[in-house]
Design a binder for these strands. Structure first.
Length: 108
DNA sequence: CGTCTGACGTGGT
DNA sequence: TACCACGCCAGAC
């Protein structure tokens, strides 16, 4: 298994309950800014085996895009994350602000 | 090895 | 805001 893959799993475990992170965010934290797709692959193949909080990872638009979206929606709602009918989450409100993103909210 | 496949991101329209 | 095209790169085969 690649070091990157291990990093990704470690980062996913750091996502706090009640918050979400995007695939790209996890990829950056794990050292590969362009590795978002790999994060999705890792989730798909390892989340079961390694018991990862896979439901806390969504795309950059704040949407749940997987087939089993209802399952993910339920898991997130149990943690207090609001999701609308379009399977969308308010990232401003629920995104996990990890160390590499401390400039995000300075734009205004 | 070479080729294909995504639970994605970004920039252009 | 929504949609499209293209780049990305670890695994499966």
């Amino acid at each position: 298994m690649e070091a990157f893959t291990k990093n990704v799993m470690a980062r996913i475990r750091e996502i706090p309950t009640g918050h979400v992170a995007t695939y790209g965010q996890i990829a950056r934290l794990a050292g590969k800014p362009r590795g978002a797709r790999q994060v999705s692959r890792i989730l798909h193949s390892m989340s079961n085996k390694y018991k990862l909080p896979w439901h806390r990872v969504i795309n950059a638009k704040g949407e749940i895009v997987i087939k089993d979206s209802d399952r993910q929606k339920i898991l997130l709602e149990k943690e207090g994350v609001e999701i609308n009918n379009q399977m969308r989450i308010n990232l401003k409100k629920y995104q996990w602000m990890s160390e590499d993103m401390d400039m995000e909210w300075m734009e205004g």
